[in-house]
Simulated assay, not measured.
Amino acid sequence: MAPSAHGEALSHLGVAGYRSLQQLMLPIGQLTLVSGANGCGKSNLYRALGLVAAAARGDLVATLAAEGGLAAVLWAGPERGSQGSRLRLGFAGKTLSYAIELGFRADDETSAFLLDPEIKREWIWAGGAFHPRSLLVQRSGAVVERCGDRRSPLALEVTPHESLFTAVSDPLEAPEVFQLRRTILSWRFYDSFRTDRLAPARLSHLSTRTPSLAADGGDLAAAVQTIFEIGDGEGLQAAIGDAFPGCHLAVDTSQPSFRLQLHQPGLLRPLDAAELSDGTLRYLLLAAALFSPRLPPLLVLNEPENSLHPDLLPPLARLIDAVAQQTQVWVIAHAEALITALQGTSGCRTLQLEREQGATLLPGQSALDRAAWRWP
């Protein structure tokens, strides 16, 4: 396995006011397994982390709009309290941490966009647990400023839908912002690769060097060839042999659009991606993602077991465990076989979520842990 890209390892994810996540602080390990019954809020955690990534990209408000707007995603359960109209997201890292708070726009009789969410506040601080003296950069309303001894404005008149990551772009003036944005943008999310007849991975695409498999898997052949050339090609072949005994991968590079081929015992010719079963194609997509020559600082897999035969789950767990030795991996799973296999690996932190009165809970976490938030 290649070493992961430089980036900030996470220690906690904090969410308040988002869907079933009334107020939750989750510890994150090198390999974190999130499980629980259907409807307990596993997917909401995946979406919440995706919203943090959207803030770094600069399209958080648009991403919330695609979910139905702020009103559709706010916690709507009992004990809503004074913070019921606010959404707060953030994470703690070893050296840098970040949090953001969103709410509804202030009353403006001249605007028809009163339900648009706006970014109220943002914070970047040093270390994990927040302390006022550790604050490096903060945004309040339209102003982003540096804190501490060098207190000074970094950006003025920031629009309500614009995060500090897009408002402040000078790496010399604000290296913390630049470094954290770069790290967040390098996180990689894989959620239910398509394997139907028209799935991107089954279609022909012009191939270029691909150190990281795309989220839709459309560049699968190019990603595999890149692994063969600059990554751990032998390891990938061994992983394929572990899942499919006697099989190995090849890539036909004779045309600008590469063709992925799976050689199987007893067949006179290899099978192209268009001919593979859904489960086989999905496993190849996961293997290509996990054997990336450019591993991200955080790799998130949402229910990777979907459409896989139970016999493929132990090899998948071994593959995930190997990658977790190189970078931080977060897996959201519901298949008992995969959960059991991952729990048997060294260093796996398991978070078994439950739901009570509509709220997602982590059993054993005290009310003080949830309320403290460890954020501003």
Rank of each mutant, 00 (worst) to 15 (best):
Y46H: 10
A48P: 03
A48F: 01
V52Q: 06
V52D: 04
A53L: 02
A55V: 02
D59C: 05
D59Y: 04
L60H: 07
L60M: 07
A62K: 04
A62G: 02
T63W: 08
L64C: 07
L64P: 06
A66C: 12
E67G: 05
E67L: 11
A71G: 11
A71I: 08
V73M: 04
L74K: 08
A76G: 12
G77D: 14
G77F: 12
P78S: 05
R80G: 08
G81C: 12
S82I: 12
Q83T: 14
R88Q: 15
R88Y: 10
L89H: 11
G90I: 04
G93D: 00
K94E: 14
K94H: 14
L96M: 10
L96T: 06
L96A: 03
S97L: 03
S97W: 01
S97R: 07
S97G: 06
Y98A: 00
I100P: 08
I100E: 10
I100K: 10
I100L: 15
E101N: 09
F104R: 02
R105D: 03
D108L: 00
D108Y: 07
D108F: 01
T110I: 10
A112Y: 02
F113W: 05
L114H: 11
L114M: 14
D116S: 04
P117W: 02
I119E: 00
I119Y: 05
K120Q: 12
K120R: 15
R121A: 11
R121N: 10
E122C: 07
E122R: 09
I124E: 09
W125F: 09
W125D: 07
W125G: 06
G127F: 08
A129V: 05
R133D: 15
V137T: 10
V137K: 11
Q138K: 13
S140I: 14
S140N: 13
S140T: 13
G141K: 06
G141W: 13
V143H: 13
V143F: 11
E145I: 09
C147A: 10
D149S: 15
D149R: 15
R150K: 15
R150T: 13
R150S: 15
